[in-house]
Nucleic acid binder design. Sequence first.
DNA 1: GGCGATATAAATGTCAGACATTTAAAGGTC
DNA 2: GACCTTTAAATGTCTGACATTTATATCGCC
Lengths: 249, 249
Amino acid sequence: MKSASEPKPDSKPQDLSAQIAQAIRDAIVEGRMIVDERLPSEAELSEQFGVSRSTVREALKRLAAQSLIRTQRGAFGGAFVNKLSYEDAYSQHITTSTLLLSMNAVSFETACEARYALERACAPLACERRTPDHLATMRAEIHRQSQPGLSDESFCASDVALHRALVDAAGNPVLSYQLAGAVEAMQPLMNMITFTARSREEIVGLHTELADALEGETPVLAEAALHKLEAYTLTLGQDVMAARARKSS
Amino acid sequence: MKSASEPKPDSKPQDLSAQIAQAIRDAIVEGRMIVDERLPSEAELSEQFGVSRSTVREALKRLAAQSLIRTQRGAFGGAFVNKLSYEDAYSQHITTSTLLLSMNAVSFETACEARYALERACAPLACERRTPDHLATMRAEIHRQSQPGLSDESFCASDVALHRALVDAAGNPVLSYQLAGAVEAMQPLMNMITFTARSREEIVGLHTELADALEGETPVLAEAALHKLEAYTLTLGQDVMAARARKSS
DNA sequence: GGCGATATAAATGTCAGACATTTAAAGGTC
DNA sequence: GACCTTTAAATGTCTGACATTTATATCGCC
């Protein structure tokens, strides 16, 4: 793997707590410590590394922030190598993706393209494996989206739920994990768009096409629906941008 | 357990340092603090939150571990909201994905399926946008892979580099970020496979098909090559599994 | 006046020790 | 044997001190 011998000569000597965290992280990632194994106590670690207990604690908190360890108080407590759950990984991935998008001025076009490309990737699998449950969820969300009184926020949330159902229908947890970030991180960008009655109607129509394609197990139609959805979402976004540009100029 | 009447099984009240970290994290994610803005000093934070400086420091270390803040020593130093770079996001994503796969006993089949589904997602874009540079990289890696003396590790690394070039050719950084985890996290699983001369030849052939498809801008052929590659990788993996089962029984 | 060396101050990094709290296990009582 | 109490081993928190880093201000010299 990479690390220590980076070509970058600038590398500042890190804090002790960062170094210790890295040492333990390596041990976990490389499998030298297994899930649920107990780390030495803070006192023992501070002796092993020749630092104070506070420094060790800061290192452990870094690892805890990445869900690499969990701590338990009391006798026979301590820090344990944590089994990284899909749930933990999801939420970290979503936080990171959301920040990445918002802090790097990713254009609506780029994010949209990535999102729908990824969703099309799971369309064939979803057609093959979708259960009645998945179809029911999608139909329910579509029904929700066609109700007139729905707020923009709720419409967006329902949109995410529908797409989430599509992803889950592919029946591959690794795929679901990878896509969760892409879809959910888009929501802040989606929330910029104000949906008119007209545009909602169009979207609901395309969602229905998508659900029909899954039900009929026709991947080509599912991909086509996603292509149309991407194109339409893009025009909506560009309209909003154009309107803003006009207003501000 | 006293009562089930709690509306939310609030599980456990978190540590103070975790609460403080969450409060600051929320402020950053919700945009109440912007990039490069300076946080109050540790002393000020400890007064604001009514805790000791060590507790504040543990909270800050948690945030630093997620690359949400960076710290600078010296006068007018302090903690600053960090602009999350693609690089930081990559490495976090890869670490998380690798652990997720290794700790949750994800099958080779599932991981393989996810990986190639994602790669096929960027095939059409890559056909459209690949530069001569991308093609050159792919050809160079293919040439490397066909050299007889190459170690298994190097072969795998070259495989990753080739697929990385494919992903980058799509010219969408968000897509690259999302896929980096999937492809690189697979490497430990790929390293299980020992490549015979025969299997390498087959893989190099399929890689060439893929490069040809990109060069000819024929997305259908690119997807076909990836499908064949997935199928072949899968059989290789299953052979290894079967051989192990025979040996251990 | 300008410039280089020095002092200063503000902040993080580290340490040491104490006390509080939690928790499981050992021991004692009926 | 069931229930209560004690105990010990951990983490969680606080306090105060000192070390180190670094931008800025000051001073002395030309």
